[in-house]
Amino acid sequence: MENELKQLIITSLDLEDMSVEDIDSQEALFNEGLGLDSIDALELGLAIRKKYDVRIDAEKDDVVKIFASVASLTEYIESEQAKDQ
């Protein structure tokens, strides 16, 4: 799942010159690290909603923690999907 999510990040955020290997699962996605910004957060939120049917709510969820890294995002998506089953 982590690799699938990395691929989603690359395609949905126009990072075409990057590959899955360039993204470290533990690395920070925003500011330092990969260097994504607030628009990317919205875009990625939309892409995740479309692909996994998981909604990340800025009002209710701890967005900073969820979006911290590929690892934390994966964990969140998997736990939300488990709830639905």
């Binding site: 955020l13 126009d14 628009i39 990317d40 919205l42 875009e43 939309l46 909603r49 479309k50």
Partner: peptide, 9 residues
């Protein structure tokens, strides 16, 4: 379809 926040901005 939902529109892209990046495209919108």
């Amino acid at each position: 379809e939902e529109i892209s926040p990046t495209a919108f901005s």
